[in-house]
Design a protein around this nucleic acid. Structure first.
Length: 418
RNA sequence: GGAGAGGUGACAGAGUUCGGUCGAUUGUGCCUCCCUGCUAAGGAGGUGUGGGUUUACGCCCACCGUGGGUUCAAAUCCCACCCUCUCCGCCA
């Protein structure tokens, strides 16, 4: 949730929200609502103070004075009730609008929409167009079976089989090892969470239609372990000395992919269920922009070491999610498409999610919302297919990147399944 | 899933019978000071969070698992939910 006080006081902050698509009117009406909420709150509190004082007197009063005093207190109480009802309304409307106002974009984020990203740099030589695309390789080697998965669960599901599974676990182990070396705490997180967590982590109400809901149990399947990692310190105050506190989460991720009919229909690129190794950092407010670079660098290292050509882009303001103030995407080169496609991303949420979660850092005087950042270490599906495409051999098998071999028993080539 | 017990400040642990001076006794821890070769022990004081308002001192509001309710007044009474523990059943 945005910082209402700052939204009122800081013109740059306001401008950043507008750049992300909040309208001037929405911001103005939010600020107006907040201002009347404050006024109403003062009135309610004064009225309550008077009522409290009257009640306390009853306790101290002689029995014969009580009745009169109770009558007086009752009267005060009535007036209070009306004021409180008004306050509740104002509060609800402030919250409703506030949740829809996005975290303002950082000044380094370019203006514009989906196509207005800024290319930071490209790494590696673009692999020429291969004989087979990743879906065809998967099918030919029997390591990705979407046909049978459709029978099981419908479109956009896949069985991962044989050497591809060995590669999957190698990727997980490789990424874990690397991140543990940087002080990340490994975590396997709940994938079913309550509605509150989705709101507080910054996904609801905006992305609600992308999320699977288990109505009977009032639980939601997370689209990323980020939710579980963001909620782990809910309501807590962390010591300054413990920051940054970094987690690496591993979980399955579930996405409805509503509104993507016809896009990326084959193979593993866009599926309803995939596994992901995710980085998450709790960070001192003064250090979050440096921390974002740390996450980006780690992501780049991973793709460099896997020897997959990629580029880094800064996502434009209008294409940022609600919570991100800045986001880098790493896009791997997909030779069958002769295009770069998103494989990981990392974002600085600044205090947007932490304020809602009530995760704060203790300072010398008081406490303040800390900053949270998240970044993909390895999205298994998309990384697997990037390997298939870029490391394809002439006979249709796939060479295993050197760095992964120690993690899959020395496997050098992904061959056909049984 | 069935039966029972319970959730109070950093921790331990009162208060809940009979609602009122309880934002909450006490102990430990922590901070400051005194005493003191050092340490320990001992003595004095202080020590929750969030919010509103104020130049400031301060004043006020809220919070005893969460959300409602009863009442002039709720940690205390009522309801729902969440969580923890014990026993039974089931299960990886």
């Amino acid at each position: 949730m945005i910082d209402l006080r700052r939204l009122n006081d800081d013109a740059d902050y306001r401008a950043g929200a507008i750049r992300k698509g909040a309208t001037e009117e929405a911001v103005a009406s939010l600020l107006a609502a907040e201002s009347s909420r404050r006024k109403q709150m003062t009135m309610v509190e004064d009225a309550r103070a008077a009522a409290n004082a009257a009640s306390k007197e009853i306790g101290r009063a002689q029995p014969d004075e009580r009745e009169a005093k109770i009558a007086a207190a009752s009267e005060l109480k009535e007036g209070l009730g009306a004021l409180e009802a008004e306050l509740a309304e104002l509060q609800a409307s402030v919250e409703e609008i506030a949740l829809t106002v996005p975290n303002p974009a950082h000044e380094s984020v370019p203006d514009g929409g989906e196509d207005a990203f800024r290319i930071e740099h490209e790494v590696g030589d673009r692999t020429p167009e291969p004989a087979l695309d990743h879906a065809a390789i998967g099918e030919k080697l029997g390591i990705v079976d979407t046909e049978r998965a459709v029978r099981m669960s419908g479109s956009r599901f896949a069985y991962v089989l044989g050497d591809a599974v060995r590669l999957q676990f190698a990727l997980v182990q490789y990424a874990m090892d690397k991140l543990l070396g940087h002080g990340f705490i490994p975590a396997v997180v709940p994938v079913l969470v309550r509605e509150d967590m989705m709101v507080d982590a910054g996904f609801f109400p905006t992305d609600r239609d992308q999320v699977y809901e288990l109505e009977k149990d009032e639980l939601f399947l997370v689209g990323t372990s980020e939710v579980g990692l963001a909620g782990i310190h809910r309501g807590e105050r962390l010591d300054e000395a413990d920051l940054p506190r970094r987690y690496v989460g591993y979980s399955s991720c579930f996405r409805r992919e509503a509104g993507t009919y016809g896009k990326d229909t084959s193979g593993l690129f866009r599926v309803h269920q995939f596994d992901k190794v995710e980085m998450f950092s709790y960070c001192h407010p003064d250090g979050s922009w440096d921390e974002l670079e740390v996450l980006r660098t780690l992501e780049e290292e991973i793709f460099s070491e896997l020897q997959i050509p990629y580029r880094v882009i800064t996502v434009a303001a209008g294409d940022l999610g609600n919570a991100a103030a800045k986001k880098y995407d790493i896009e791997a080169w997909i030779p069958s498409q002769q295009a770069y496609r998103e494989v990981t991303s990392c974002s600085n949420y600044t205090d947007y999610s932490a304020r809602r979660m009530g995760t704060r850092v203790k300072l010398e005087k008081g406490a303040t919302a800390l900053h949270t950042l998240n970044g993909t270490a390895v999205a298994i599906g998309r990384t697997l297919l990037s390997i298939f495409e870029n490391h394809q051999l002439a006979d249709g098998t796939v060479s295993v990147p050197e760095v992964l071999r120690p993690f899959c028993g020395g496997l050098e080539v992904v061959g056909p399944t049984g």
